[in-house]
C-alpha cells in the first residue's frame, strides 16, 4: 500500500500549483481551472485521510465540495460569458475600469 505521506505530499503540490496558477495566469478560465485544482487537492487529501482512518465523514465532505464546486462553475461561467458579451475580451489585465 502506498503510504499516506505520498498522498498528502501530492495534494500539497497540486494545491501549490493551483494557488500559483491563480496568481500568475491572466485568463479567467485558466484561473478558474486553477481554483478547481486547489479544491481537488483538498479532496485528494481528505479521501486519503478517510481511507487511512476508515471513517466516512470525510467522504461525505468530498461530495459536498464537488457539489458546491459545480454550483460555483455555473455562476462563474455565467459571469465570464456576461463580461465577454460586453467587452469582447476576458483578459484580466483589461479589467481595469475600477481602480484607485
Amino acid at each position: 500500500m502506498i503510504p499516506i505521506n505520498y498522498y498528502i505530499a501530492l495534494s500539497a503540490i497540486l494545491f501549490t500549483i493551483g494557488a500559483l496558477g491563480v496568481l500568475v495566469r491572466r485568463n479567467p478560465l485558466i484561473i478558474f481551472m486553477s481554483i478547481e485544482l486547489m479544491l481537488n487537492a483538498a479532496n485528494l487529501a481528505i479521501v486519503a485521510f478517510t481511507r487511512v482512518y476508515q471513517i466516512l465523514e470525510g467522504q461525505i465532505f468530498v461530495f459536498f465540495v464537488m457539489t458546491v464546486a459545480a454550483a460555483e462553475v455555473a455562476v462563474g461561467l455565467a459571469l465570464i460569458v456576461a463580461i465577454f458579451r460586453t467587452k469582447h475580451s476576458i483578459n484580466i489585465d483589461e479589467m481595469n475600469n475600477l481602480k484607485g
Partner: peptide, 14 residues
C-alpha cells in the same frame, strides 16, 4: 450589462 458591475462580480467571484 454595466461593465463596472460585471467586473466587480467577476473579481469578487475569482
Amino acid at each position: 450589462p454595466n461593465v463596472n458591475s460585471e467586473e466587480a462580480g467577476l473579481k469578487y467571484f475569482l
